[in-house]
């Protein structure tokens, strides 16, 4: 797989390490009443879709940036690559 890095251009996926579903950006608030339940879901439960999947990749052997890659789990086709930082900032703005 080739990941089209927003800053560095197309890079081989073997330069990256994979973390998992991009929902891991949305860490729950530990001070809410049901924090225990929210953290259980955040840490352990996954949508695991067959189809489009947004996921976190770390460019470990490159510029060490975190990326949000939108990729099909049925064909491995990558349709979108964003800096995770930008995704996290825009999500916070939406709140």
């Amino acid at each position: 797989m080739i990941i089209n890095h927003p800053l560095l251009g197309p890079r081989d996926a073997s330069e990256f390490t994979y973390l998992g579903d991009a929902s891991l950006i949305d860490r729950p608030d530990w001070q809410t009443d049901n924090a225990q339940e929210l953290f259980h879901e955040y840490l352990y439960l996954r949508d695991n879709p067959a189809g489009e999947h947004r996921e976190l990749w770390f460019h470990e052997q490159g510029d060490r940036s975190w990326l949000v890659v939108t990729r099909s789990t049925l064909t491995h086709e990558i349709t979108k690559v964003e800096l995770a930082r930008d995704v996290a900032i825009s999500r916070r703005r939406d709140e």
């Binding site: 998992g20 579903d21 879901e41 352990y44 439960l45 996954r46 949508d47 695991n48 879709p49 067959a50 789990t73």
Partner: peptide, 16 residues
């Protein structure tokens, strides 16, 4: 498992 159990509305501690 993820695909099938989603039909029952369940999320699992599993990745494929």
């Amino acid at each position: 498992s993820g695909r099938v159990m989603a039909k029952a509305g369940m999320r699992l501690p599993i990745e494929s």
